[in-house]
């Protein structure tokens, strides 16, 4: 493995051990958005930074094999469309855009607050995939522009 292929072995080992923990923490922040501080935006940025960490530590080629970046493009659009569809369901069932259509449940429980956790998950998908794809596109362009990696 060449020196230009990512960073040193220390960074790679730490990244390999910590990346799944960071992603898990991001998922926790997204799912508990209606109970504790955080939510879709914060958790999404945590997951995007975990992917970025892999990209910086291991280089572009390894990340291309590890992740399917094409699916990420589609996931961003899917999250945005599902958010809109939930809003339209609100019109159909309760009479106003983005109305809370599901059962509210019990306060302080994970499966409470009706539609709020679901919207939180969609926002998390949009933010995490979107921010990573943005930096990824910039990096790829930089590479094909004749720049060094």
């Amino acid at each position: 493995m060449k020196q230009s292929d990512g960073m040193t072995v220390i960074v790679k080992t730490i990244t390999r051990m910590s990346v799944w923990l960071i992603i898990l923490y991001g998922i926790y922040i997204i799912l508990h958005g209606h109970l504790t501080p955080g939510g879709g935006f914060a958790g999404g940025v945590i997951i995007a930074l975990a992917f970025l960490n892999v990209m910086l530590a291991y280089g572009r080629k390894y990340t291309e094999q590890w992740l399917n970046v094409r699916i990420m493009y589609d996931l961003v659009s899917t999250g945005a469309i599902l958010f809109l569809i939930i809003g339209i369901f609100g019109i159909a069932l309760k009479g106003s855009f983005l109305a809370n259509i599901l059962d509210l449940g019990e306060l302080f429980k994970l499966e409470s607050a009706g539609v709020i956790p679901i919207i939180d998950i969609f926002i998390g998908v949009i933010v995490s995939m979107g921010l990573f794809v943005m930096v990824w596109t910039l990096a790829v362009f930089h590479l094909e522009d004749g720049g060094e990696e």
């Binding site: 958005g33 501080p37 939510g39 958010f83 983005l98 809370n100 509210l104 607050a113 709020i116 919207i119």
Partner: peptide
Amino acid sequence: THSANIVTSIILDYRAYDTLGEATVL
């Protein structure tokens, strides 16, 4: 809204339209 975090209940229930705009900007 039965959401323990009042901030989330505001940005995703009362003001969900604003959040949709924010997501659209991104």
